[in-house]
Simulated scan of single mutants.
Amino acid sequence: MAQAIPEFKKQLFINQLSIKYLIEADVRYWEWKYPDWSEKKEGDRKQLISEELDAFEKTMSGTNGAGKSILSVTMPDPNGGSPISVFKITPIDDKIKSGLYVEDSQEASSHIYTALQVDPTLSGISPGKGMGAGSGSDKRVAGNLFVNTHSFHQDLILEVLNLVRDYNGWDPELEFRFLNPEINTLDKPAESTPKTDA
């Protein structure tokens, strides 16, 4: 899952359509604005529609469009009804911006941390919606637990040194150790003494 999600999202971003607004124009608008609309060639019609769209994009896109106003045209109904709203602008909701598959990715990361026996707070995250880094106490306790439960890695290193000691005929009472500090709370600085593990 952890490997599939990034690849899936990469392809999703490559292949997705990035459309912000859907602009609908009443077909009668063109006949009202251009009395000879029905006589124009198709190429001329497309050109006029493209120019109208460009005007919208200049107003609605980029930082230069911030705070600008949009002129919404209404035209009289030929049948005597209420005025016709020429343009209808509908914002298109982008589902990707809402963090699609973020929770799945966090769950996969959580499984990896669990398999490695590493508390996520040690690397600065707590999997889940909050994406918090955990409190100081979480990190302190997690750090102490990690050192205490992973001392077998240190034992493997010490085995080599012990072999060298025995091979060279050094004093058998000679011991090699790691100095592992025990992290305590700030209100107990006197208790922050190094802890040695054989």
Rank of each mutant, 00 (worst) to 15 (best):
D44G: 06
K46S: 14
Q47F: 15
L48G: 04
L53S: 10
D54L: 02
E57A: 07
T59L: 13
N64I: 01
N64S: 13
K68R: 15
K68D: 12
S69L: 11
I70G: 07
L71N: 11
S72C: 07
V73T: 15
P76L: 10
G80E: 13
G81C: 08
S82R: 08
S85M: 03
K88T: 08
I89W: 06
I89S: 07
I89Q: 07
I89N: 07
T90K: 10
S98C: 04
G99Q: 10
E103C: 01
E103N: 11
E103W: 05
E103P: 02
D104E: 15
Q106E: 14
E107D: 10
A108P: 04
H111F: 06
Y113S: 00
T114N: 15
T114V: 01
A115F: 07
V118G: 01
P120N: 05
L122T: 04
G124Q: 03
G124R: 01
S126P: 00
S126A: 05
M131Q: 15
G132R: 09
G132V: 08
A133M: 07
A133H: 09
S137T: 14
D138P: 03
D138E: 14
D138R: 09
A142V: 04
A142R: 08
L145Q: 12
L145P: 00
F146W: 10
T149C: 04
F152M: 02
D155E: 13
D155T: 08
